[in-house]
Amino acid sequence: MDVVSHGSYIQRLAPMFVLPQESEADGWSPQKVVRTLVSPSNPAQVTSSSQKTIKTCGMLEALCNILMASGVPADILTETINTVAEVIRGSQSNQDYFASVMAPSNPPRPAIVVLLMSMVNEKQPFVLRCSVLYCFQCFLFKNEIGQSQLVQTLLPSTTEGEFCI
């Protein structure tokens, strides 16, 4: 399958990600189909082209809406997190978009922060927590801006002339 035909298939999948969504008991979930298109084991050109198309046709936005929705079953949420992870992995444009996604909370928080908070919550299923860790790893993969922002948040605040040990 060539790169051009991938785009048309991705666009046909996009309506499957509009909320509300029911899980499929048999067969592959829509998330697994998308993950196949953006798998790191694919040729880089296929993965990159698929990532661009997924963002352009609005599927990345729909996936992020599922991530931020309340009441999503843990198994669907886990699949969606893994899918978003592979859609943003190594794609600066998609990583930038994901960084801009805000959780519907008061005050609004970045989606990545909300996901990380759920990762450290021991009440969450282990497999869900692992998917969040993978998503965070994919967010930082080849993302110098995201890496720099992370380092800045981890560095201690000091006033001029003082050093924290």
Rank of each mutant, 00 (worst) to 15 (best):
E61H: 13
E79W: 02
T47H: 01
A25L: 14
S41F: 09
V18Q: 14
N82K: 11
D26E: 09
E79S: 07
V18Y: 11
L19F: 13
K32R: 11
V84E: 08
P73T: 01
T47G: 10
L63R: 01
T83W: 06
I54V: 12
F17H: 02
L63M: 09
I54G: 09
F17L: 04
L77S: 10
K55L: 14
W28I: 09
Q51K: 12
I81S: 09
V46P: 00
G71Q: 07
G27R: 06
P73F: 01
S70C: 05
A69V: 02
W28N: 14
P20Y: 09
I76F: 05
R12A: 15
K52L: 14
C64N: 09
I81M: 12
N65Q: 08
V84T: 05
E24L: 15
W28G: 07
L19R: 09
A25D: 11
K52V: 13
P43Q: 06
S48W: 03
V46M: 10
E22W: 04
C64M: 04
D26G: 03
S41R: 11
P15C: 12
L77R: 06
M16R: 07
T36S: 15
S41H: 10
L77G: 04
G58R: 01
M59N: 07
Q21W: 02
P20F: 12
M68L: 15
Q31V: 01
V33S: 10
A14Q: 13
S29P: 00
A74F: 13
A44P: 00
S29D: 09
L13V: 02
S49T: 04
M59Q: 13
V18T: 15
A74S: 08
D26L: 13
Q51W: 11
L60K: 02
S23P: 00
P73G: 04
V72M: 11
M68V: 13
N82W: 07
P20E: 14
P15G: 13
G58V: 00
A69C: 03
E22G: 09
L67A: 10
G71S: 05
L19D: 03
A69N: 04
P40A: 14
L77N: 01
S23G: 10
C64I: 05
V84S: 12
T56C: 11
L13N: 06
A69W: 03
D26R: 06
A74K: 05
V18F: 14
T78W: 03
A74C: 06
L67F: 10
D26T: 07
V38P: 00
A25Y: 05
P43S: 01
W28C: 13
T56P: 00
P40R: 08
P30M: 07
V18C: 14
E79Y: 01
T47Y: 01
P15A: 14
I81T: 11
V38K: 09
T47N: 02
S50Q: 02
S29I: 01
I76P: 00
M16V: 01
L63C: 07
S23H: 02
E79L: 04
P30C: 05
N65A: 15
M59V: 02
M16S: 11
G71D: 02
S23Y: 03
T36D: 12
A62P: 00
S23W: 03
L13C: 12
V34F: 07
S50V: 03
E24T: 08
V46L: 10
S29M: 06
M16E: 09
